[in-house]
């Protein structure tokens, strides 16, 4: 059951096709990753979902109905470009944004205090935003996104510019919200995060969806002939080897694709025979990063031929 369905969205700005016929579904209770490099069309897509931009064509369906104010009230949105009123106090900021979502009164105040405690901001509740550190401002921004208990969270590049501690805090919160059954969409160009957190994803490149589905399905499809290797030694003998299709160095690991599934055991033996010290050898594994590079890292003509929908 999809909580949100995006049907054939298109948006052009002048001669630029920012979003070109995009469709995907976000299942209930999932963490959904919208991934792609900068300028791929993620933010434009999200803005159309948020009804900030009107699409040239296509529609967005939320639980069976076209999105409208009802959706806006139920969603918490953290835009990529963040901002708050500098002169407004922390507590006033939180209450104002909750009020815009239709939440007022003692209940929301108490909730705000609870969150402020959790985020170690309670002592700063009467400080002006401009007097807060950047990290704390980001916390407040995130609080404005979740204070009104949205059913649905849309986070545009939520990890951009966060320090490691806040990154972890945010991850925890996202997982906590997920455990409460909320639907979370986030966009990122950081494949590592997407891989760790999403269970469904759509990959956008140049305004088109090039990959869409659940993470496990995608990985199993792309991983079948793939080996992820950590090693020390010399593996140059594998280049041009008859059963190796290609080797790519991803820094932390090396991805090797064999021509057929059955060659994997032979590859392991071959490495040992050649005195390569193996630290990690995982068969049938591929990182999202590798898939992304494979699909999007080519020149334009290749991408068109490799377009994959609904794996």
């Amino acid at each position: 059951m999809n909580a949100l369905e995006v049907h054939n969205l298109r948006k052009t700005f002048g001669s630029i096709k920012a979003v070109d016929n995009i469709s995907f579904g976000v299942p209930e209770g999932s963490v959904f990753g919208l991934i792609g490099r900068n300028g791929a069309g993620k933010t434009t897509t999200i803005r159309m979902i948020m009804n900030i931009y009107l699409p040239d064509s296509g529609e967005v369906i939320f639980r069976g109905a076209k999105i409208g104010q009802d959706f806006r009230d139920k969603v918490g949105y953290l835009p990529e470009e963040r901002g708050l009123y500098k002169k407004l106090k922390v507590m006033e900021t939180l209450l104002y944004f909750a009020e815009l979502k239709g939440k007022t009164g003692k209940e929301i105040e108490n909730k705000a205090y609870k969150y402020l405690n959790k985020f170690e901001l309670y002592d700063r509740r009467n400080s002006k935003l401009e007097d807060l550190s950047k990290g704390n401002q980001q916390k407040v921004q995130f609080l404005t996104t979740i204070l009104h208990s949205p059913d649905f969270l849309i986070l545009d590049e939520p990890f951009a510019g966060l320090d490691p501690i806040n990154t972890n805090l945010l991850k925890e919160i996202i997982l906590e919200l997920k455990s409460q059954g909320k639907v979370i969409i986030f966009s990122t160009h950081l494949m590592d995060f997407a891989e760790k957190m999403c269970d469904h994803l759509a990959m956008i490149d140049r305004g088109k969806i090039i990959l869409n589905g659940s993470l496990s399905e995608i990985k199993s499809k792309y991983a079948q002939r793939n080996v992820s290797l950590n090693y020390s030694g010399d593996i140059s003998f594998l280049r041009n080897h008859p059963f190796v299709e290609k080797i790519e160095d991803y820094g932390n690991s090396t991805g090797i694709r064999v021509k057929d599934n059955s060659y994997i055991q032979q590859l392991l033996r071959l490495l040992i025979d050649n005195n390569v010290t193996i630290n990690k050898f995982s068969a049938n594994e591929i990182s999202l990063h590798e898939i992304f590079i494979e699909l999007a890292g080519k020149d334009d003509t290749n991408i068109l031929s490799k377009e994959v929908n609904n794996v």
Binding site: R47, M50, N51, I52, R72, D73, V75, Y77, P79, E81, R82, G83, L84, Y85, K86, F97, L100, K101, Q141, T144, I154
Partner: peptide
């Protein structure tokens, strides 16, 4: 300050 995008997610 980019506040406007946050605002526009709540009201038009």
């Amino acid at each position: 300050n980019k506040i406007v995008e946050v605002l526009l997610s709540s009201l038009d």
